[in-house]
């Protein structure tokens, strides 16, 4: 099998040119990208026109399900880098984290809601909820983003859901996104651990 050295040389040459130029999309490519982006921006602005009955939610993934939490109760999102487990507390409290010198507890809402475990997930993000009284973090696999949801699109609850979970639900969107009632979570006494050991 003879090697076509000429072809190889030409291919190498073109590769070298490409790498020298660096990643510079062509003119058409750049125009196309910008157009798409403009379209998306335009759609968002259309939605914004009839927003009087909407809420801003932070969307996140947990155990392959999409959840949402109202943005006004979210202080910030923080990467869950160093988690310190604490003994002698309920299992839904995973431990404590240090957020710029402030010590906060982190809650696994799956365990808090008694949801079934669905395999191992990333769990490397913490969403820090806050109210006047309390601040704590809940675990998330990944943060999807921020969006506004029309309240009339929000269905109050699923008839099949009962018990503890129903209390903390604000509603379910058409896309089956579960919107958590962060206010309820924040005022819930059961979340406060006050045990003398």
């Amino acid at each position: 099998m003879a090697i076509n050295w000429e072809e190889i040389h030409s291919r190498l040459e073109s590769a070298k040119i490409t790498s020298d130029k660096g990643f510079q999309p062509s003119r058409e490519e750049r125009d196309r990208i910008l157009k798409e982006r403009a379209k998306i921006t335009a759609l968002e602005s259309n939605e914004g026109l009839k927003k009087e009955e909407s809420i801003e939610v932070l969307e996140f993934m947990l155990a392959y399900e999409r959840y949402g939490v109202e943005l006004k109760y979210v202080r910030e999102v923080y990467p869950l880098t160093e988690l310190t487990p604490i003994p002698g507390i309920p299992s839904f409290v995973l431990g404590i984290i240090n957020v710029r010198g402030e010590i906060l507890s982190v809650i696994d809402i799956k365990k808090f809601f008694d949801l079934p475990e669905k395999g191992l997930t990333d769990l490397n993000k913490a969403i820090i909820l806050h109210s006047a009284e309390i601040e704590f973090g809940i675990l998330a696999d990944s943060i999807v983003g921020v969006r506004s949801i029309l309240l009339n699109e929000l269905q109050p609850s699923l008839p099949t859901l009962t018990g503890i979970r129903e209390e903390y639900l604000k509603g379910v969107t058409k896309e089956r996104e579960v919107i958590l009632d962060a206010e309820r979570l924040l005022i819930d006494k059961s979340i406060i651990v006050n045990e003398n050991v």
């Binding site: 999102v77 943060i143 921020v146």
Partner: peptide, 13 residues
């Protein structure tokens, strides 16, 4: 990404 989300949160506030 996180920074963007936090920025959004801050903006909402």
């Amino acid at each position: 990404n996180l920074l963007a989300v936090n920025a959004a949160i801050e903006a909402t506030k």
